[in-house]
Amino acid sequence: MKTLTYLAVLEPTGGKTYSVFFPDVPGCISTGKDLEDAVKNAKESLELHYYGLFKDEDEIPVPSDTVSKEDADGCIVSPVTIYPDIVVERFNNKKVKTNCTLPAWLKEIAENNHINYSQVLESAIKQKLGLNQ
């Protein structure tokens, strides 16, 4: 399974809090209320950033195995590994909320019959697009 491991720089910001950035992934930043939270949030941020690059068909940065002295000075450097195929699969299949309109009488009958709107709409769209297996 393909993995990508980037080095995260966790910078103390006072108390137990940290700000996080990835020198190899410009714009990918995060924070944490403590070290454990910062590392967890760094991974979530990196996964989301990766997915955005993937969806936009942007170039995926190549991870390096070192961090510059000025980036690392006074900070903690931690490797963060993601699994690109799993990230894409998870975000592509994430359920999202959407609104639709129905006649009031149909909504009332559906509710009285305990119809799951999401399930019916998903099934109908798949059928309309010929995506049913």
Rank of each mutant, 00 (worst) to 15 (best):
C28N: 03
E57K: 15
D73S: 13
Y117K: 13
T101H: 06
K97I: 12
N41G: 07
I60R: 00
I29R: 09
V88P: 00
L46V: 01
F91D: 05
V77S: 01
I125D: 04
R90G: 08
P23C: 05
K95Y: 09
D65Q: 14
I109R: 11
C75R: 07
G130E: 07
K97P: 00
P61T: 04
Q127V: 09
N113K: 15
T17P: 09
K128W: 15
M1R: 11
A72T: 11
Y117L: 07
H49S: 05
P12A: 05
D56N: 12
P12N: 01
E44W: 06
T3R: 13
K33I: 13
M1D: 14
S45E: 02
E122V: 13
Y6K: 02
M1W: 11
I109Y: 14
V88K: 04
H49D: 10
S118C: 05
E36A: 15
A110N: 00
T66P: 09
K94H: 07
N113E: 15
A8L: 01
D58W: 14
Y117P: 08
S68M: 09
L35P: 11
N113L: 07
E36H: 13
L4C: 05
N99E: 08
T3V: 05
Q119F: 12
K40L: 14
K94S: 10
G27D: 08
D24A: 05
C28Q: 02
F22P: 05
I29T: 11
L102G: 02
Y18L: 01
N99G: 08
I29V: 14
C100N: 10
Q133A: 12
G14L: 01
A72C: 09
I109T: 12
E111V: 10
E108R: 15
N99M: 12
L129K: 04
Y51H: 02
S78G: 08
D34Q: 02
N92R: 13
I125E: 02
S64M: 11
D37V: 09
C100M: 10
V96E: 06
V80W: 05
K16P: 06
T5Y: 01
D34F: 00
F21E: 05
G130Q: 08
H114R: 15
E44G: 13
L102P: 00
Q119V: 10
I115W: 03
T3E: 07
A8N: 05
V9P: 01
Q127W: 11
Y50T: 03
A72H: 07
Y50P: 02
I29L: 13
W105L: 06
T3S: 12
L106T: 02
V9R: 07
F21W: 04
N116K: 08
K16W: 08
W105I: 07
P61W: 00
D65E: 14
T66L: 09
V87R: 06
K2V: 14
K55Y: 08
T31R: 12
D34M: 01
S68E: 15
S19D: 11
G14D: 09
G52E: 09
Q133V: 11
R90W: 13
